[in-house]
Design a protein around this nucleic acid. Sequence first.
DNA 1: CAAGTGATTGTTTCC
DNA 2: GGAAACAATCACTTG
Length: 91
Amino acid sequence: MSGTRKPKTTRKKKDPNAPKRSLSAYMFFANENRDIVRSENPGITFGGVGKLLGEKWKALTPDEKSPYEQKAENDKKRYEQEKANYLAQQQ
DNA sequence: CAAGTGATTGTTTCC
DNA sequence: GGAAACAATCACTTG
């Protein structure tokens, strides 16, 4: 119970260049599951796919997430240079 | 120095 | 085009 939603509290407004952030492991996993889950569940709707996706995501194991987490790591670095370049020009 | 806090990321389906 | 479930994140903010 720390920061689940985003009701609002502190934190600056937004960066001038706003390098945004990186994707999450779920984003990479979802990229592969969207076509697979939906392919195995033809007819299922957002109510099922959306929830079903999350359940399966953890249904696997940290080992299955591994490939996705790996991509997340690479993407994180992507953001790292974004921020670096953003901070450089910002100065 | 430490903790947490928000902001964001992408998918799906739906009107 | 945006909304909500689903999850991770994790770099920045602040005291």
